[in-house]
């Protein structure tokens, strides 16, 4: 008990001593970075709709183009530099997801196609897919139950 209290005390002390980023400044930068990326996405969506594509297909093109852009920027070592400035503004959009797949692919190729890239490409993004699919499955199961029991039409 005593040791736990000591450890908690040290943790609280360290928290006070450790400098933190200027939050309002970082929020501002994240706002701009994220806003720009979303605006680019909006531009793609608008072009697709003008070309007469349906909503889901437009969404697909937007995702695809943003992913390609992010992968290229990752390869040229530009996306990490934007992230240093933009923080969450580069993590939150789908471009952050793409970067988290591209970065391991590029890094781990030295360990081989199967054991390197193959095994480790999802090192960072794996949880997003696992928990995303799992959550949608749980929600879907709940939805199906509600339908089958007549609570929803």
């Amino acid at each position: 008990m005593d040791k736990e209290r000591q450890q908690q005390a040290y943790e609280n002390y360290v928290k006070k001593k450790t400098p933190v980023h200027n939050l309002p400044a970082n929020m501002g930068k994240a706002f701009i970075a994220g806003g720009v990326i979303c605006t680019v996405g909006q531009a793609v969506l608008n072009i697709c709709e003008k070309l007469g594509l349906d909503k889901d297909v437009s969404g697909g093109w937007t995702s695809m183009i943003l992913v390609v852009a992010s992968v290229l920027l990752t390869g040229f070592n530009i996306y990490p530099r934007i992230a240093k400035w933009g923080g969450a503004g580069t993590l939150v959009p789908i471009t952050g997801f793409a970067n988290s797949v591209a970065a391991p692919a590029i890094e781990y190729k030295k360990e081989g196609q199967v054991m390197g890239i193959g095994c480790k490409i999802f090192t960072i993004a794996g949880p997003v897919i696992l928990y995303g699919i799992f959550t949608s499955w749980v929600l879907g199961f709940g939805y199906w139950l509600l339908k089958v029991s007549g609570i929803i039409a």
Partner: peptide
């Protein structure tokens, strides 16, 4: 629009 669809 994209402000909601592009984020994760």
């Amino acid at each position: 629009g994209a402000g909601a669809s592009v984020p994760l």
